[in-house]
């Protein structure tokens, strides 16, 4: 049970002089239950990549296997694939449209052809999972705050009961607390349900804090694919492609340059504090 991308290429405008290779020979294996971060500068191919995972875009060449089945197979049920791999786009709250939150979340499962009771159960469950309080269920989605709207929109995807949840920049434009709340909820959800979660993000601090594995995209290729600590070791290379390790990594490097014997591997504030404490004790 997993997603396998086997030499996937994607070319925009293939028969025109403006052809762009957006994905270049991608080979990836995504086992069940991982929390993965995909990072890359604007235009590096990360959104193109995730849109392949649920068949929204079809590779120009190469194969994608979902749970062992080739999704480009003639009789493969791609509609079902879309309910298995849930995609939450950037600014998903722009897709809210119903008169109240609950009906909005029902829209997806209703379209799967489930009976009313099951639809409502799923909607209720999804709204609980994203931590939206009951009293908001029957409010207009447009009266909610930015963070609440976004959670309502994520619930709409969760109600499809996906096995894989892909979130494209779920925290863009939210205040720091809102960012933390959403990411913590996603982490809890991931732990509780064992769902595979793929987080596309520009925030290295967020990625460092939450994910088990980072895939770095550059010019349509996978540049690094490793645990956060290992990926962020390549500070210079990341900067060259418009990214950066989390701020704490820079801080530790600066401390080291100035003569404090710290390990510069830490990627979260908590880890950095441990490292500095150790360095201080070593001195005294």
């Amino acid at each position: 049970m997993s997603i396998i991308l086997d030499h996937v290429n994607y070319i925009y405008g293939g028969d025109t002089p403006l052809a762009v290779r957006a994905l270049d020979d991608i080979c990836l294996q995504i086992p069940d239950g991982q929390f993965i971060g995909i990072i890359g500068h604007t235009g590096s191919g990360k959104s193109t990549l995730v849109q392949h995972l649920n068949g929204l875009l079809k590779a120009s060449s190469g194969s994608i296997y979902f749970n062992g089945e080739d999704i480009y197979d003639r009789d493969y049920d791609r509609k079902k694939l879309r309910s298995k791999v849930g995609l939450v786009f950037q600014y998903p709250e722009h897709q809210l449209f119903e008169t109240d939150v609950f009906t909005d979340v029902c829209f997806g499962p209703k379209n799967l052809g489930l009976d009313k009771k099951e639809v409502e159960l799923r909607a209720y469950d999804a709204l609980r999972k994203v931590g939206l309080p009951d009293e908001l269920f029957y409010q207009s989605p447009f009266d909610l705050s930015g963070g609440q709207k976004r959670r309502a929109a994520i619930a709409g995807v969760l109600a499809m009961k996906p096995e894989v949840l892909v979130l494209d920049e779920p925290t863009a434009g939210l205040d720091p607390k809102g960012r933390e709340e959403i990411l913590q909820q996603i982490r809890e959800l991931q732990k509780k349900t064992g769902m595979t979660v793929i987080l596309v993000s520009h925030s290295m601090e967020d990625v460092a804090e939450y994910v088990d594995r980072i895939i770095v995209m550059n010019r349509g290729r996978v540049m690094y694919d490793d645990v956060p600590k290992e990926v962020f070791r390549h500070g210079k290379e990341l900067e060259e492609v418009g990214l950066a390790p989390p701020q704490v990594t820079y801080i530790l490097q600066e401390l080291r340059r100035r003569g404090l014997q710290v390990d510069t591997d830490a990627t979260t504030v908590e880890e950095a504090a441990d490292v500095v404490m150790r360095a201080l004790q070593y001195v005294t």
Binding site: P176, P246, Q247, V248, V276, M277
Partner: peptide, 23 residues
């Protein structure tokens, strides 16, 4: 700031964390 749903830069947060640990 945290009560107001905000944050501080990571370096400030690191210093704050170290203060809490007695530095």
């Amino acid at each position: 700031l945290k009560e107001l749903r905000l944050d501080v830069p990571q370096v400030t947060l690191l210093a704050y964390e170290l203060q809490k640990r007695g530095v």
